[in-house]
């Protein structure tokens, strides 16, 4: 369902992604691990169409559509969701309204009527409960003044609301304490379904204890240099990244 082919991206003259190939089938969970500066975060940005990387080469197919030809919002409406590593603060914009806006954008895309605030409120209560989030979250402004952990939970709340088919988690475990990590990871794990794909980008393997990946890839120097099963993650945790990088050379 999700097919990345020979994806390249640069900042200025510097090539960051040097030809990435990756296929995620429905129901699969993949993990991308790699040292700092390997291009993990760039990959997330390129896939979602961040303005820093408008000129990417290659193709990214989601259910047969090339995302690289679409605007960021169109990509999202095709079912791509990124839980950001650093969710941006948006002062003055109410969290619940924002969620409803995004939800209604999806409804509109699917040719359905917009949901009114009251119905939406009921709908969201149930999602909040899943993440043990307080109702007051909704009254606050989007990520504004949130702690690192609150921001991450808010991302997962959005995931539950929008129900995308292809989910990318970018370093979602960073900034979470152990309890929050467990809640977030379990929620994501419960999100797994035969028709959904998940890509977990992470530096450490602890998140993978909860969300067990089918395949683990190692990203180094802009390329996937090794792929394997869950045991690869543990090996990396144990031995560090140097050996993979060395092996790749």
């Amino acid at each position: 369902m999700f097919n990345i082919k020979d994806l390249k991206a640069s900042i200025g003259d510097k090539e960051i992604l040097k030809g990435i190939n990756l296929t995620i089938n429905p129901g699969e969970v993949h993990a991308i691990m790699g040292p700092n500066g390997s291009g993990k975060s760039t990959l997330a940005k390129v896939l979602t169409g961040h303005p820093d990387f408008t000129e990417a080469e290659g193709s990214v197919l989601l259910k047969g559509k090339n995302l690289l030809e679409l605007d960021p919002d169109e990509r999202a409406l095709e079912g791509l969701f990124l839980a950001f590593q650093y969710p941006v603060e948006i002062p003055g914009v109410n969290n619940e309204e924002f969620l409803r806006m995004a939800y209604n954008a999806k409804m509109k895309k699917n040719g359905k009527d917009a949901v009114d605030p009251l119905d939406f409120s009921d709908f969201i209560q149930e999602k909040l409960a899943k993440l043990s989030m307080d109702e007051s979250f909704l009254e606050r402004n989007v990520n504004h003044g949130f702690s690192g952990g609150e921001k991450k939970r808010n991302e997962i709340l959005q995931l539950l609301v929008l129900e995308p088919e292809m989910v990318i988690l970018d370093e979602t475990d960073s900034g979470l304490d152990i309890d929050a990590l467990r809640i977030v990871a379990k929620t994501v794990d419960a999100y797994r379904r035969a028709d959904r794909g998940i890509l977990v980008i992470t530096h450490y393997q602890r998140l993978l204890d909860y969300i067990k990946p089918d395949i683990v890839h190692v990203l180094a120097n802009g390329k996937i240099v090794k792929s394997g099963d869950k045991s690869l993650a543990l090996e990396l945790e144990d031995k560090g990244y140097d050996w993979v990088e060395a092996e790749a050379k």
Binding site: T48, G49, H50, P51, D71, P72, D73, R75, A76, L77, F81, L82, F84, P87, V88, I90, F98, M101, A102, A105, K106, K109, V142, Q158, L162
Partner: peptide, 9 residues
């Protein structure tokens, strides 16, 4: 970009 990633133009 954040808005757009959530499907809002």
């Amino acid at each position: 970009h954040y808005f757009q990633q959530r499907g809002i133009n």
